[in-house]
Structures are given as structure tokens and as C-alpha cells.
Simulated scan of single mutants.
Amino acid sequence: MARYEGRHRSAPVPSTAPRSNRATPAARSGRGHGQAAQATSGAGSVRHGRSTPRKRHFGRPILAGALALGLGASGFAYAKANDLIGADTAAFVVGNGVVAQTDELARASTVDTTYRAAASVSRNERRTAIAATGSRTAKELEAKQKLAAAQQAEKARAAAEKAARDQARQRVIDNAKNDPQSAARILMADHGWSSDAQYNCLVNLWNGESDWRWSATNASSGAYGIPQSLPASKMAQFGADYRTNPLTQIKWGLWYIEMSYGNPCNAWSTWQARSPHWY
């Protein structure tokens, strides 16, 4: 009797508030029964003894996350290896502006590379052209120098030869009294008669006239000197010393032959055709 009363006194007092017949969402979903049972169990635990604290397991979420990351990386690698990425056009969409910018950068890079290559080639070509021009200029300069040296040498040789001829001429002329024929051959070149034939005709002509003596005088006519000038004073136009200088006589005789017969051979033929002989 006493136990019953104690239990009755500890029982909760029934509420007088009206209870709703409407079921709560938890009740409709069935979770109410479980929660109620859990609450009852908990209450019983409180009543019958000290409740044990619930252990929290932290390793399981970390392990699950690492596993998820690993699976994701493996899937991405597999998709990348099998060209699965990009198959979904909706997943990877590149804007037109990005494509145009990429193309422009590619073109700019190509143009820059081409320009650099062209500039390098142009520089090399300029260097080659400069080197070739320098080589041509050096060769041309060397050729010009050689030509100038050859021309200078030729001029020097010609001048030396002329000087030698002039010296020889002067020696022969100075020796005209001793060798009038050699002096006559030297002076014949001034009239353009340089052949041996013309020289031989002159030698024969003046051998017949005076035997090449500068003081020869024709007793009957008065003709004088190597060319037998008549009168002797005609030779004065080549020098006042015409009576003593065989060179003056030879100069006048050559002039006379050219003016009267054209050359010594014509004068010699005329001399032979006349009798007595004269020209």
C-alpha cells in the first residue's frame, strides 16, 4: 500500500489542456515513434542510472573525403586519357572573344618570328653584300692599280725609247760630216720614208750627183753640195751654213725631192731616164 502511493505521487500530473487530434509531421513520417522510444529509453536510463557519453568518430569523415578526392582524381585522369573531357559541349564552352584573342596572339607570334627570321636573313644578306662589295671594290682597285702601273711602265718605256732614239739621232746628226748617209736616213723618217728601198734609191741618186761630198762642185753648171743645188744659194732657207754643213744640205735635198718627185725612188728613176743625168 505504501509502495503504490509512492509511485502514484511520483507520476506526472495529467495535463488538463485539450489535446489536438492532428498528427505532427514527425508522427506522420514515422519518426515520432522512434524518437519517442528513444526519449523513453533515455528517460529510463536517467531513472535507472548515469548516462554514458556518446563517442564521436572523427576519422570516418576524413577518410571518406580522401577517398572521394582520390576517386575524383582517378576519374579525371581516366577521362583525360580517353579524351572524354570536352565531349560534353555544354561543360566546356569557350567564348568567341577568347578564341579571337588566342588567334591574334598566335598570329602576332608567327609574325614576330617571321620578322625576326627575315631581319636575321636581311642582316646576313647585308653583311654578305657588304663583304662582296668590299671584295669587288678591293679587286677593282687592285685591277686599276695594276692597269695604272702597266700604263705608267709603258709610258716610261716609251719615254726611255724616245730618249734613246733622240740621243742616237743627235749623235748621228752631230757626225753628219763623217757619215752623211746615216744622217740622211735619220732625217728621211721625218718625211715618212722609212723603208730600205727608199733609202737605197736616195743613196744611188746622190752617189751619181756628188758621191755624198758636202763640198762637191759642178764645174760646168756651178751646182753645189751633196744634192747639187743650182744655184747653191737655194739651200740657204735651211741654214746660212749651207756651204760647210752637210746636215743643212741634206735637209734641203730631201725637201726638194718631196716637192718635185714625191719620194727618192721617183727621183732616181727620173735621173736614170735622163741623159746627161739630172733630177
Results as ranks from 00 to 15, higher is better:
4 Y>E: 10
5 E>C: 05
7 R>H: 11
10 S>C: 01
12 P>M: 08
13 V>A: 12
15 S>M: 05
15 S>R: 05
16 T>R: 05
16 T>V: 06
16 T>N: 01
30 G>S: 03
32 G>C: 02
35 Q>R: 15
35 Q>E: 08
36 A>R: 10
37 A>P: 01
37 A>E: 14
40 T>A: 13
41 S>A: 15
41 S>K: 02
44 G>W: 04
45 S>F: 00
47 R>I: 06
49 G>P: 00
55 K>W: 06
57 H>C: 04
59 G>L: 11
62 I>V: 14
63 L>S: 09
66 A>V: 14
72 G>T: 14
79 A>Q: 08
83 D>M: 03
83 D>I: 00
85 I>K: 05
88 D>S: 11
89 T>G: 13
91 A>M: 11
92 F>R: 02
95 G>P: 09
96 N>R: 11
98 V>Q: 07
99 V>F: 02
100 A>N: 07
101 Q>N: 13
104 E>W: 09
104 E>Y: 06
105 L>T: 12
107 R>H: 13
108 A>H: 14
110 T>D: 14
115 Y>C: 04
115 Y>W: 05
115 Y>Q: 07
115 Y>R: 13
116 R>C: 01
119 A>L: 09
119 A>W: 05
120 S>V: 12
122 S>E: 09
124 N>Q: 10
127 R>E: 12
132 A>G: 08
133 T>A: 15
133 T>E: 14
134 G>M: 08
140 E>W: 03
140 E>T: 12
146 K>Q: 12
148 A>G: 08
149 A>D: 15
152 Q>P: 01
153 A>V: 05
155 K>N: 04
155 K>Q: 13
156 A>D: 12
158 A>P: 02
165 R>K: 07
168 A>P: 03
173 I>E: 11
175 N>Y: 07
178 N>P: 00
180 P>K: 05
180 P>Y: 08
185 R>I: 07
185 R>D: 05
187 L>R: 09
188 M>D: 09
192 G>A: 09
192 G>W: 10
193 W>T: 05
199 Y>R: 14
201 C>Y: 09
204 N>Q: 12
207 N>H: 12
213 R>E: 03
214 W>Q: 10
218 N>Y: 02
219 A>T: 12
222 G>Y: 03
222 G>V: 00
226 I>T: 10
228 Q>W: 02
230 L>R: 11
238 F>N: 11
240 A>D: 11
243 R>P: 05
243 R>E: 06
245 N>Y: 02
252 W>E: 04
252 W>D: 03
254 L>M: 14
259 M>N: 15
260 S>R: 14
261 Y>V: 06
262 G>A: 12
263 N>E: 07
263 N>C: 03
264 P>A: 13
264 P>R: 09
265 C>I: 08
269 S>D: 15
270 T>N: 15
271 W>R: 14
271 W>A: 11
273 A>I: 02
273 A>F: 01
273 A>T: 01
273 A>M: 00
275 S>C: 00
278 W>I: 02
